[in-house]
Design a protein around this nucleic acid. Sequence first.
DNA 1: CCCCTTTATTACAGGCTCCATAGATATTCA
DNA 2: TGAATATCTATGGAGCCTGTAATAAAGGGG
Lengths: 408, 408
Amino acid sequence: MIKSDKGDIIQRPLIARSKPVQASGGDLQRLRQQNILNSLRALREACAPLTLTELVAQTGLSRASVGDVVAELQQHGWIAEVEPAPGTLGRPAKRYRFRTEAGHVLGIDMGVHKVLAVVTDLAGRTVASGRVAVDRHTARHERLEAACRAIDAALVASGLAASDLWGATAGSTGVVNREGLITRVNDLPDWPGVDLAGHLGQRLPCPISIENDSKLAALAEQRLGVAAGVRDLVYLHVGRRPGAALILNGQLHHGFSGATGEVGLMEITGWRTMAGHLESCPAAAGASPQEAARLVFDAARAGDPDAQAAVDVYARHLALGTAAMVLTLDPELVVLGGGFSRSADVLLPALNRALEPHCVRLPDIRPSTLGEECVALGGACLALDHVDEWLFSLEGTIASPAAPQRLP
Amino acid sequence: MIKSDKGDIIQRPLIARSKPVQASGGDLQRLRQQNILNSLRALREACAPLTLTELVAQTGLSRASVGDVVAELQQHGWIAEVEPAPGTLGRPAKRYRFRTEAGHVLGIDMGVHKVLAVVTDLAGRTVASGRVAVDRHTARHERLEAACRAIDAALVASGLAASDLWGATAGSTGVVNREGLITRVNDLPDWPGVDLAGHLGQRLPCPISIENDSKLAALAEQRLGVAAGVRDLVYLHVGRRPGAALILNGQLHHGFSGATGEVGLMEITGWRTMAGHLESCPAAAGASPQEAARLVFDAARAGDPDAQAAVDVYARHLALGTAAMVLTLDPELVVLGGGFSRSADVLLPALNRALEPHCVRLPDIRPSTLGEECVALGGACLALDHVDEWLFSLEGTIASPAAPQRLP
DNA sequence: CCCCTTTATTACAGGCTCCATAGATATTCA
DNA sequence: TGAATATCTATGGAGCCTGTAATAAAGGGG
């Protein structure tokens, strides 16, 4: 027996590691499982259907093994064969594609003025949607009722049953904590504390999560929109109630209690009152608060000096809070979303000018591209993230695509 | 042949995913490799030496396989046998421990007033160090010379050769970009643009990286210090030149160009001038700038109302920039580091009071515990991260512990 | 002092997955 | 129609993990 050179000293866990330990590998069947999932992933991420030979190159497996794996995936219905590409030399190779239509998820936007439910496939493509109008004064239970109607409409339009959904995420104003509880809300007096997940759970048997609306909008832009693939970005919601959300290292940053991007709460940024500078502008005289901003942006675009000055003041305040986040995080990109982003042609240059003196490095600033489905699509993206986690977790064995059921 | 139900439609990569694809699994030998690395990881992360039976439980492998794996690891020198635990029933089981002494890394603090080189083992335990005093006026080449002397001293004290090191990371003031180039520096006029990695590379054949000093201090606190295991934290460097660094999701947040935590550059925070409030306090009259702050904190602790007021003003300014970061990120913890943190008993309550009105949720605030070796230890931690990446990458086959060589 | 219980180690048979190689097949181009 | 090219199919062999049974080592009780 070899004697320990340190005797009986107990080793303490001296250093905390950055990544949590997760077991993988093990059984032979686990190896096969891994190879199956790797192939599935390669097919999903690919731009075009892949031939077996291409898959061999991507996975590093031998042709024979890839053949087995693909046969199994096809048998279970995860992938489908596509007509071979014409015009190639030699015997034409079979081509396979990931069946994005094998499953669907639901994204729900519990907006102040509307409830929008969107059903997407596994690639985040919109399949169907349902929409119900509400307003600032709609009571809590009517709002929840509207959500159910919007969901039903989307399901009917998609031809799916509720039990076919693999996951759902709803976006709401206010701070949403780690448990999905809505804790702080400005716009809707009877909304805090609502058990949104519980209510939706009566209608949907799939896993459900709740998230802040700006965060979902940011996620949507990073997955499907103008920020596709960017790792670090700040999403600015510019509208009558400004807000912000962060994507860091490719993932939504939720923070410890969900209250991220709340820099506007500092009085010196002036975010709470800056929309007033637009509404009090002569160009907006007599218009409703909803209309005011657009009128001012239009006037500024047309050359009205008062309107341009008002936009500049607004941009300077916006820049103050934005600079705090940009200086803190040094993101690659700032995305301009929310109602006012429709006037990005006017607002963006003003913001650029106002931000520049504060910054070490001025990040790229781009207007959002997804429009008003943004939050619902972000919900679908988050639900897809959860599907991914479940699908690639190596727990259990691969089976035919089927909706996971929520545990009680 | 199965006909595609969508004909020849080319699938676009509609959705960008959060995690980049990385192949794993494959060969049978890869499976063995994975099982070896999992066992090695389990042994490293464990608090005490493990028996084979415990390892079986942790890895999910069969006893026979674990036996094979452990024999191979021991043969290569990654693990060592320890005397069996006495006083257990039945035949005593062999116990094994991770050989933290199998390799070493170097952390270097290129401070304004000192150069400190620390050699640690694979658990981040300090094995030896070397220190050379410099000052604000030391020229660039002397500073680089001092670094070499400090490194040599640490190597001599540790009994290692430069070629035994598995990695090295140096911390420096200023903004360090992704390529390790130092771009912006306040304290040292001839320091920007210095090729620190190149210079150290002449002395050290191992991989070398450069990082900002506050960032390394933050990392050290998160791995070895008061923030051990915390996923999201803000590190505040409080001293004559305040600064900040972020750990997000367990990893150092570097940002796009390295300029993170620079919220103090905004004039309204007053970070550039706030130390003056301490120096102009009567309690610090006649003292050198270095001494002034400590005198004021001491006086405040003793009850001097002028000093207490000065500390309050200082804390209010500090709180402004801190609030910007805390509201943006909602971290679990704020760590107070830097020179002034020695007076945390006075400063921390004042900061708490000043921060509270700004915050949605006041994070926990704790003073740093690592002291002046902080930056060098952080360098060692970052070097260990790179070692981990290389070790657990599944590239090639497991071999005896040996220092990786830098590619030319 | 011997025997029994408990636990760890060793040895062997069996099953699964992967790889390599060679021959058969399907399409294009001359 | 035949040559060239590339894919598909089938078979044999090797490596790794598992499960079970036999063996070894320590402590406690009679």
